[in-house]
Every structure is written in C-alpha cells, then in structure tokens.
Simulated scan of single mutants.
Amino acid sequence: MSVIAQVFVVLAGVFHLAVFAMESLLFRKPSTYKRFRVKDDTEAAVARPWAFNQGFYNLFLALGALGGLIAGGDKGHAIALFACACMAGAGIVLIASDRRMAQAAALQAAPPIAALVLAAVL
C-alpha cells in the first residue's frame, strides 16, 4: 500500500478514535451530545446506551485500520482496508438516512474512501 494511502488510513483511524471518545466517554456533556442532534439532557439519557455502544464500534474500526497498518504486509493492509470499507459504508448510510448529517458523513467517509481509492490505483 502506498504511503499516501496509509496517511488516509491513519486519518480515518484517528477520526474514529475521536468519535469513540465523544460517544463513549464524553456523551454526557451538552456540547458533545448536541453534535449528534440530541436536544437536551432527557434525550441524552435515552440516547446514551446506544451512543456508548456505537462509540465502541468506532473504536474497533479505528483499531482495525491502525492495527492493520502496524501489522503491515498484505494481511495487515487487507485488515486496514476492510476497516476503511466499513467506515466508508457507514458514512454513506449516514448521509442516506439523514441529509442534515452531510458534513458528519463527509468527515466520516472521505478519508477511508480516499485510502481505498489510493490503495487501488497506486
């Protein structure tokens, strides 16, 4: 895998680590839960269990992408690219389900899509 493709894998992994922190560790803060279109503390209390779970989903994707790069070789790179494909798919689902989430979907999907494309052509 080219170095530039690896850079985009790292960007995708770091983004998903940040989302893990927001969803699983910082979700109780209004400044955090409002990023997810949660209006108030009452809604946040209801949403917290799924946000916590979703955060770990993002952590595992990040670990797959970053761990695959660290492992290296064809198998490690395949793991990293599979994690990127999952990230890209989730971003596409996000924009398809709620057009108001276009910016979040772009942040989520653009780096892993770039990694996939660059890994395929370089």
Score class of each variant (00 low, 15 high):
Phe52Gly: 01
Asn53Ile: 06
Gln54Asp: 01
Gln54Leu: 11
Gln54Lys: 04
Gly55Ala: 08
Gly55Leu: 12
Gly55Pro: 08
Phe56Asp: 00
Phe56Ser: 01
Tyr57Gln: 03
Asn58Gly: 04
Leu59Gly: 07
Leu59Met: 13
Phe60Ala: 08
Phe60Thr: 05
Leu61Asp: 01
Ala62His: 03
Ala62Asp: 08
Leu63Thr: 07
Gly64Trp: 00
Gly64Ile: 01
Ala65Thr: 05
Ala65Ser: 14
Ala65Asp: 06
Ala65Gln: 15
Leu66Gln: 05
Leu66Tyr: 07
Leu66Glu: 05
Leu66Phe: 05
Leu66His: 08
Gly67Tyr: 03
Gly67Cys: 09
Gly67Val: 09
Ile70Phe: 07
Ile70Val: 15
Ala71His: 07
Ala71Cys: 00
Ala71Tyr: 10
Ala71Lys: 13
Gly72Glu: 06
Gly72Ala: 11
Gly73Leu: 11
Gly73Asn: 08
Asp74Gln: 12
Lys75Thr: 15
Lys75Ala: 15
Lys75Asp: 15
Lys75Arg: 13
Lys75Ile: 13
Gly76Thr: 12
Gly76Asn: 09
Gly76Arg: 03
Ala78Lys: 07
Ala78Gly: 06
Ile79Met: 04
Ala80His: 01
Leu81Cys: 06
Leu81Gln: 13
Phe82Ala: 15
Phe82Thr: 15
Ala83Ile: 07
Cys84His: 09
Ala85Leu: 15
Ala85Phe: 09
Cys86Val: 15
Cys86Thr: 14
Met87Tyr: 02
Met87Gly: 05
Ala88Asn: 01
Ala88Gly: 01
Ala88Thr: 15
Gly89Gln: 06
Gly89Pro: 09
Gly89Ile: 01
Ala90Asp: 11
Val93Tyr: 12
Val93Glu: 00
Val93Gln: 04
Val93Phe: 13
Leu94Gln: 12
Leu94Phe: 04
Leu94Val: 03
Leu94Tyr: 06
Ile95Glu: 02
Ala96Lys: 08
Asp98Trp: 11
Asp98His: 14
Arg99Pro: 03
Arg99Trp: 13
Arg100Ile: 02
Arg100Val: 02
Arg100Asn: 11
Met101Phe: 12
Met101Pro: 00
Ala102Cys: 04
Ala102Val: 13
Ala102Arg: 10
Ala105Val: 09
